[in-house]
Amino acid sequence: MKIRKEDVYEHLEMLYEIVGDEKYLEIIRMYGGSNLYIPTYKATIRNSRNREIRKRYNGVNLSLLAAEYGMSVNNLRNIVKGD
């Protein structure tokens, strides 16, 4: 089934433009009528970012990583400890 942009509720137009009509209909079929929480970008990438930090940590480069990731040394220390 083909839908047009004017068939889409105004508050979902951006979603429609991002995913296209086929994926939009798939999302509507799966989640239509329910409340769907979409986490923030920052929350979504947190685990991946933390894995990358642990991989790059060499025991002495916390300050460098803190500057690169825009985080405090204390936050990075907690990440590399696994907290």
Rank of each mutant, 00 (worst) to 15 (best):
G20S: 05
S34R: 11
E22D: 15
Y37N: 04
G20I: 01
S34F: 12
S34Y: 15
V8I: 13
M14R: 14
L25K: 15
L25V: 07
E13W: 03
E26I: 05
E6R: 14
Y9I: 06
E6G: 07
Y37F: 13
L12M: 07
M14A: 13
G33R: 03
D21G: 05
E6I: 13
R29N: 14
L25P: 02
D21S: 15
N35C: 00
L36W: 07
L36G: 00
Y24N: 01
E13D: 00
E10P: 08
E22I: 14
M14C: 03
I27Y: 14
G33P: 01
V19G: 01
E22C: 03
E13H: 05
Y37M: 07
N35V: 12
D21Y: 13
E22M: 09
I18N: 04
V8C: 01
G33M: 02
I18Y: 09
G33L: 05
Y16G: 04
K5E: 15
E22V: 14
K23A: 12
Y31Q: 01
Y9P: 12
V8G: 02
G33A: 02
R4Q: 15
L25N: 06
K5R: 15
V19T: 04
Y24R: 02
L25I: 09
H11L: 10
L36R: 09
M14L: 11
Y16C: 06
E26R: 13
Y37R: 10
E22P: 01
K23W: 03
G32S: 08
H11R: 08
G20Q: 03
M14T: 12
N35D: 11
K23S: 07
E17V: 05
Y37W: 09
E17K: 11
Y24H: 03
L12Y: 09
Y9L: 10
Y37V: 12
R29K: 15
I28D: 08
L25S: 06
R29C: 04
Y31G: 02
K23Q: 11
E6A: 09
N35G: 01
R4I: 05
R4H: 15
E17N: 13
D7W: 09
S34L: 11
L15G: 04
G32K: 06
L25H: 01
Y24Q: 02
G33I: 03
E13P: 00
L15W: 07
